[in-house]
Simulated scan of single mutants.
Amino acid sequence: MPKSKRNKQVTLSKTKKKGREHKESIVSTIREAVEQYNSAYVFSFENMRNIKFKEFRDQLKASSRFFLGSNKVMQVALGRSVSDEIRTGLYNISKVLRGDSGLLLTNLPNEEVHRLFNEFEEYDFARTGTLATEKVELNEGPLDQFTHEMEPFLRKQGMPVRLNKGVVELISDYVVCEEGKPISPEASRILRLMGIKMATFRLHLLCRWSPEDFEVYQDGLENSDIETS
């Protein structure tokens, strides 16, 4: 049986002692976990929602472990080349860890992992800067969905409103957001008040490693240095 490379010493960036110890702890934790699970995946995410992700993670905690954080630290833990990888072929995983991505270590069958990720989708209110998925326009006239107490707040968001006999009234047509354009802070607040959700939290599998093979799932990865079986 080949000698494990998990305990090889690594050099992390120069930081304060506390920061260095924290990074070393993460590296050690990932390396120990790699020995406990059958396969490893890199996944990307869009419109991350921490609470929803925690629920998804807890759903799989009996069979899997997730890591999010510094990609560089995870790369160091896994190994960034053949010479420092902790298991054969695992350094290919670290090459895909870039941008908004995370690491999944699991004992679940490949088909089950794909099913869970493909079915995961959570809708939420859009944050500032998110691209609007549709145009939202309010027509001149009464806004029955808002109570009279909301009128000062709506005015602060730039809406041309007034109170007319205790009813919030729009004195001219107003575009909250345009499809394909970034949502402003004011528009984000108004859309939330209207109950309109434009953000979808999704997870996308990018690649999979196992002792037998390595697969890349997503087109467009810079995989010129990635070895596939």
Rank of each mutant, 00 (worst) to 15 (best):
T128G: 06
T130I: 06
L131M: 10
K135I: 12
K135N: 13
E137R: 11
L138D: 07
N139S: 15
G141H: 06
P142Y: 01
D144Y: 13
D144S: 14
D144G: 12
F146P: 01
T147Q: 13
H148G: 00
H148N: 12
H148K: 13
H148W: 12
H148A: 14
E149W: 12
E149V: 10
E149M: 08
M150R: 13
M150N: 10
M150V: 07
M150G: 00
E151F: 02
P152E: 06
F153I: 08
L154A: 05
M159K: 04
M159F: 01
M159W: 02
P160I: 11
P160H: 15
V161S: 02
K165I: 03
K165H: 09
G166E: 06
V168Q: 06
V168F: 00
E169D: 10
L170P: 00
I171D: 11
I171G: 06
I171C: 03
S172Y: 10
Y174V: 04
Y174N: 08
C177G: 04
E179I: 07
E179F: 02
E179Y: 00
I183S: 05
P185Q: 11
A187P: 02
S188L: 03
L191K: 02
R192A: 09
L193Q: 09
M194H: 02
M194E: 06
G195A: 10
G195Y: 08
M198K: 02
M198Y: 00
T200A: 14
T200C: 12
T200K: 15
R202M: 07
H204I: 05
L206H: 08
L206S: 08
W209R: 07
D213V: 04
E215Y: 14
V216S: 11
V216Y: 07
Y217I: 05
